[in-house]
């Protein structure tokens, strides 16, 4: 008994009207604002700013701060994304091999992912504070003294490490769930053929998980492009804007300077870059979902 079209529309109407009013409309409003030089308290602010054509976009694309934010965001995607997937896969396999106590480990693993990022970033950053943080103390005991917050690459490294620590639970649990659902005869067949453990991982487990690795990568890209809280709490973009992500730079322009027009333009450009990266994944999902 297939659902009738009118029935279908009635059921989805509330949800899609909300999305239409509160997402589609703001999206177009954002695009509209991005063509205006609207700044609170600035000239012409009472009139909602003037139409300035592509001026905001040209300004952004020629601003080194924008490219800095974009490149750090891409570094996070590349470095933290890759490390999360490799490390996450390792822990997921260990969890799969453990025959007892998985629940206990999972409970602890979930903490960095489920506690609000403003809190986790604060507590993670504390550990690296000079003369106070426990990790900084341990490092100084073996003769390593780094001021994590004072220069570009240590601060970037800190945020990258935090991103891995924060995203790991998601990666681990998605892979772990898939491993549990994996048909046993795959591994059995490889075992009978005399494959070593690492061979089995490489030739059986990884190919089995491949579609999922792509899915996880896609979610990681989305989440890393949204990283804002972590930067705001850990480094506030410093030293000297070097740890700004695209989202953080966007916030600073829109709400720090109250340049609503420019801020809108940055978010439209961010959207374009997100979809440039996600394009192939989205196309693939489109083809897959069409067939069900």
């Amino acid at each position: 008994m297939e659902m009738k079209r009118s029935e279908f529309l009635a059921y989805v109407a509330p949800s899609f009207l909300i999305m239409l009013a509160l997402m589609v409309f703001p999206l177009f409003f954002s695009i509209y604002l991005s063509f205006r030089n609207f700044t609170y308290g600035g000239p012409a602010s009472s009139a909602g700013g003037n139409f300035v054509g592509f001026e905001n976009y040209l300004y952004i694309l020629s601003s080194s701060r924008f490219w800095g934010g974009l490149s750090f965001t891409l570094i996070l995607v590349l470095v933290s994304g890759t490390v999360s997937i490799v490390l996450g896969l390792t822990i997921a396999i260990l969890l799969y091999e453990a025959r007892k106590g998985e629940g206990f480990f999972i409970a602890g693993y979930l903490l960095p992912y489920t506690v609000p990022p403003v809190v986790t970033t604060m507590v993670f950053g504390w550990l690296f504070r000079n003369n106070w943080g426990y990790v900084d103390y341990l490092l100084s005991q073996i003769g390593i003294n780094i001021n994590w917050f004072a220069s570009k690459w240590p601060a970037r490294a800190l945020l990258s490490m935090h991103t891995v620590w924060w995203m790991m639970p998601f990666v681990v649990l998605v892979f772990y769930a898939a491993l549990q659902a994996m048909p046993q005869h795959f591994l059995e067949a490889a075992r009978v053929d005399g494959a070593s453990y690492l061979q089995r991982v490489y030739y059986v487990i990884i190919p089995y998980l491949k579609p999922l690795i792509i899915f996880v990568g896609m979610i990681l890209i989305q989440d890393i492009f949204r990283i804002f809280d972590n930067v705001a709490v850990m480094t506030a973009g410093g030293p000297g804007n070097t740890t700004e992500t695209l989202a953080y730079y966007n916030y600073q322009i829109a709400f720090g300077n109250l340049s609503i027009g420019m801020g809108s333009a940055i978010s439209v450009v961010t959207l374009a870059f997100t979809f440039l990266l996600l394009g192939p994944f989205i196309h693939k999902t489109y083809l897959e979902q069409q067939n069900i």
């Binding site: 999305m19 997402m23 829109a254 959207l271 997100t274 979809f275």
Partner: peptide, 17 residues
């Protein structure tokens, strides 16, 4: 599915305004 990938600030700015 597409909307899920949007940067949140894209909505936050017009909402503010």
């Amino acid at each position: 599915f597409i909307f899920r990938a949007f940067p949140r600030i894209l909505f936050v700015i017009p909402f503010y305004q």
